[in-house]
Design a protein around this nucleic acid. Sequence first.
RNA 1: UGGGAUAACUC
Length: 349
Amino acid sequence: VMDYNSALLSCVRDGRMKEAMTIFKRLQGAGLRPDVVSYTALIQGFGKRKCYNKVTDVFSEMQRNRCPPDLKFCTVLISTFGSGGLPSLAESAMQYAHAQGLQPDAIAYTALVHAYAQEGLWEEAEKALRGMLDDGVLDDRPYAALVAAYGKAGLLENVDKVLKVMESCGVQAGTVLFNALINIHSKAEAPEKARAVLQLMQADGCECDEITYTSVMEAFTRNSQPSLAESLMEEMKQNGIQPGAVSYAVLISGYCQCGRLGDAERILRSMQNAQCKPTIEVYNIMINGYASAKMRNQAERLFQGLQDSGLRPNTVTFNTLISMYIRSRRRNQAEEMYSRMQQADCKPD
RNA sequence: UGGGAUAACUC
């Protein structure tokens, strides 16, 4: 069953659900019983594809087969309903967990708070946080989910209120919560405030991670200061955190936005030298940089290059190229790219 | 060993 499960999981990660179902059927055909991990994988996969009818099918089949759920399974249920904009089903999943005698942990509550906050159901999100305290779970990460959502909604007064509530409940801010605050400052074009949070973390001995540094870097790139972002990346490395693909992407994007394509290429090379494989997002950023600079040949070179390196163009890639051709009134090439996109049956992210 | 949340690309 474990071998089937790992095959299932790799299909689910790439969104290949038809293949996942084939494996699942083979598992059953071999006379084996799917376990809770198998069902969890299927639900996660169908949730990503937004096939909620399939999700409930899998769920009822699991109940029919008397396979007992565990907390991770319930958390996946909560989060798939949550990201589908179905917070009341997420709540039911949480109640189901309780009814099964499972004690929800901070991760489960984070999923629930996120489900409500995504939909702007602030009262219920805060109620979920109170329920968490009643369960004796003290963790800043569920608060971070709410803080981030308030930030996106522009309700900054509420951010402060949540922080005070959290403090009064004896919950200490940790990395994830600070990261969310940094991101709020970044979006508000306040890079110095973002950097101040980073310094506060360092002074407090709170661990900084890749997201911490990347968020501060982005704050500077939004302020058209990619060189400052680059020095932050150096600082990150010196503190023992290796930049991953997203960190490089942010920096490359910053240089592209300033039209500094040579610098963007330089960072791309340093990424490759660091054995960090450029992702499709990085190529999209570079293509968009060249498109904005009206350097179509370079954009096309990268479009070819990404395919040569074994990556598949996605919807964003095609959208970027199509609008480049439209902006330069190259109708035929736009249409050709459009038909390529249809042939490529690209996956929505 | 399967779960959530905080950072990047087009529209």
